[in-house]
Design a protein around this nucleic acid. Structure first.
Ligand code: NAD
Ligand code: NAD
Lengths: 207, 207
DNA sequence: CGGGGCTTGTGAATTCATTCACAAGTTAAA
DNA sequence: TTTAACTTGTGAATGAATTCACAAGCCCCG
């Protein structure tokens, strides 16, 4: 299959959110134009994005809302439950553990891991905090699909090396660090400091 | 000035972080090649990125670490203190309020705002939580540069309209919503569900 | 059943971003 | 002073993403 750009996948994600909104409002069809207005893009972009995966619309009419939503869920792999663990039960780890937006989309948080004895054994909104020493053993047993990394920046690469060795293939990283891993491991980094600096740049360099 | 791509600004941010690391280790010069290895890019990319803003290196030698760091801070607008307020003193808002990575880079969090009477009047790690009803008045008075948006998705656009009307020109949004604002308002959205779906896609569509 | 009004799907054209490749400048050593 | 080894800065080449533009298909109305 042709390689799909990251930006395309992000848009598909956005389209799905809008479709779900339309679905709850009981609308049954939608045009690429409407979808585009909603998502701040163009109708040609919407159609091109979808065209990588097939042709789901009806000319003259548009797309069936439930059908397209289903197709997008399938494309994005949202049919199944994904198993997720959090490493680093600190402030941001705790916020994420409690975030219902994840479970709602099929991301099931199994456990959190920490190296601080005060945190180990507690629960974060029903999610157990375990000893980081058990990490490899638990990964063998529970086979999580995704690791969410919320440890301090200078610990991040170590944790990556450990979980990659244990067989994890996808990591969502919140530490401000450039992580290295084999190509078959997908890593997405959310760097909030970088986003803020982007705003700083925008405020500074307006013509 | 020629329009600078978002991706370029993000890389500049990353270069600055590496340079600061080099600085603390006492190194005085660095080549584009070293900077590139560190950041997972190429030396040509580094030089091209910098070339949009001037020429800061010495042929045959590389870049002076402190000088280049200074130039990047200047380009990114990190010379000054930015004034930031948080709207939505919930779980993610609280985590951000306590995040030292922001203050450290000159982002000074003045206050948080909420509409929940139980939260108003409390403090988040020294930061006061104020009534959302005071928002416009306080913006007039305190002139924050940046608003961090951490309210539920369906409240987000309302808050945007209010702060934009009050004169705010930059917003960092964590709500999973497509926001609309005039072009002279910079908005960056961090959508964690989208990132997770990107991982889901990657795990699903590996050839 | 034919025509007008819409909307999709997609090659082609365009715009934008990255990589190449090399002249020109710097240093250090002989 | 000359030479060898490096490294920058930048046009030109390539590659990727977006936008254009239109034939082809569908629906509805008369
Ligand atoms: N708090 C925020 O809003 C925020 C925002 C952006 C980025 N981040 C980043 O997220 C990460 C965590 O930030 P935080 O504010 O939650 O910090 P925190 O100190 O509250 O949490 C870090 C947690 O990781 C644990 N930890 C440290 N080393 C570990 C290891 N080797 N193995 C397992 N657990 C370990 C600590 O015990 C702690 O509980 C940092 O990299 C930070 O830069 C945080
Ligand atoms: N918790 C997470 O890890 C996480 C992750 C990703 C995105 N988000 C997003 O961040 C936002 C906040 O999430 P949260 O988990 O912190 O939820 P939360 O319910 O803990 O916090 C939301 C806060 O906003 C306040 N609020 C609601 N409407 C308001 C209004 N009109 N004006 C002012 N304050 C208002 C509420 O009183 C509450 O304190 C949501 O949009 C959520 O989707 C959260």
């Amino acid at each position: 299959m042709k390689r799909i750009a990251d930006s395309t996948v992000r848009r598909l994600s956005a389209y799905l959110r809008f479709l779900e909104d339309f679905e709850t409002r009981g609308l049954s069809t939608i045009s690429s134009e409407e979808l585009a207005n909603r998502g701040g893009t163009t109708s040609a972009q919407v159609r091109k994005d979808l065209s990588f995966f097939g042709s789901f619309g009806k000319r003259g009419l548009g797309y069936s809302v439930p059908e397209l939503a289903g197709r997008l869920r399938e494309i994005l792999g949202l049919g199944k439950e994904w198993r997720v663990v959090i490493v680093g039960a600190g402030k941001i780890g705790a916020a994420l553990a409690q975030y219902r937006g994840f479970r709602h989309r099929g991301f099931n948080i199994l456990a959190a891991y920490d190296n601080n004895p005060d945190k180990i054994g507690r629960k974060l909104e029903g999610i157990p905090v375990r000893d980081i020493e058990q990490l490899e053993r638990d990964i063998q047993r529970d086979k999580p699909d995704i690791v969410v990394l919320t440890v301090p920046g200078d610990e991040a690469q170590d944790v990556v090396d450990r979980v990659v060795k244990a067989g994890v293939k996808a990591i969502l990283n919140f530490a401000p660090a450039q992580l290295h891993a084999p190509v078959d491991v997908a890593i997405k980094t959310v760097n909030m400091a970088m986003e803020l600096e982007g705003l700083s740049f925008a405020l500074t360099n307006r013509e």
